[in-house]
Design a protein around this nucleic acid. Structure first.
Lengths: 138, 138
DNA sequence: TTATGTGCAAAACATTTGCAGGAGT
DNA sequence: ACTCCTGCAAATGTTTTGCACATAA
């Protein structure tokens, strides 16, 4: 099993990647499916899942497995952190430098081979914060 | 809706908490169900889900929503980081100090009200690392 | 006594998979 | 041609929910 065979360039794959690059949100597989379906109405949900997974494995895109029930995908592949609103579930990038040297510390204390780390902040986004304010006044 | 009513102390809740305190792993809801069922054979899976969720909300336990398909639960409630093996899915604690001041930085750059952060390291645990070694020799 | 909690089963979601036919190289 | 890939649909796995009965306070 020589682990060969380059990934074929299919229309579906092109469109999935193009749509993902377009948005700055971090869409779920189903949201990607909806976006792709507007251009390829006959696309299958399985195809979207299979390809997102495949593209994440090869490093073309980022699979974000954070809080919430669904996995999310991101065309920005360089390491960066995320913040998730505990009210509406929205996920945004956090534009701060990644913590240096903590992988090495974790490797020492955990005895794992550490490959990466991910930081997820949780809190309340602006929109939800202002809705909550209104509720208090009610 | 005065948000009152203290949580009733039922046998199911006591046993769920006791079993969770016993283990240092980070069991999934289904694993907790299996542990509880040995003592309360007629317990319902829904009860376990409902109570784990409830206890996480009140801060009695920690709900860990990280990579992988299932949520995991932890009786250790003080902030700490986790490492997940990408091969077998196991989750361990990482006994390192939490990063100070990064919530404030994140709040500034993201415009979210930040409540917390969580760090998940990913890598390969000792057991899986040695199995991989064997494979190479094969 | 009475609001809350439980067991059970069905429903609701999210994701994966088998397969026959289709398309990239 | 010869794989690999897709659409479709069914299967799987996880979590939630409705409801009649049970139970802690």
């Amino acid at each position: 099993m020589p682990e060969n065979a380059p990934m074929r360039l299919t229309t579906q794959r092109q469109v999935i990647l193009e749509e993902l690059v377009k948005v700055s949100s971090h869409p779920t597989a189903n949201e990607v499916y909806d976006m792709v379906r507007q251009r390829l109405p006959r696309v299958g949900l399985g195809t979207v899942y299979r390809n997102l997974e495949l593209m994440a494995e090869t490093g073309m895109i980022l699979k974000i497995e954070v809080g919430g029930t669904q996995k999310r995908f991101d065309a920005t592949v360089h390491p960066h952190y995320h913040v998730r609103c505990t009210e509406c579930g929205k996920v945004d990038d956090v534009k701060m430098p990644v913590q240096q040297g903590i992988n090495e510390i974790a490797a020492q204390v955990s005895h794992y081979q550490i490959h990466a780390h991910h930081v997820e902040f949780t809190g309340v986004c602006r929109d939800c914060a202002s809705s909550q304010q209104e509720e208090k006044i009610h």
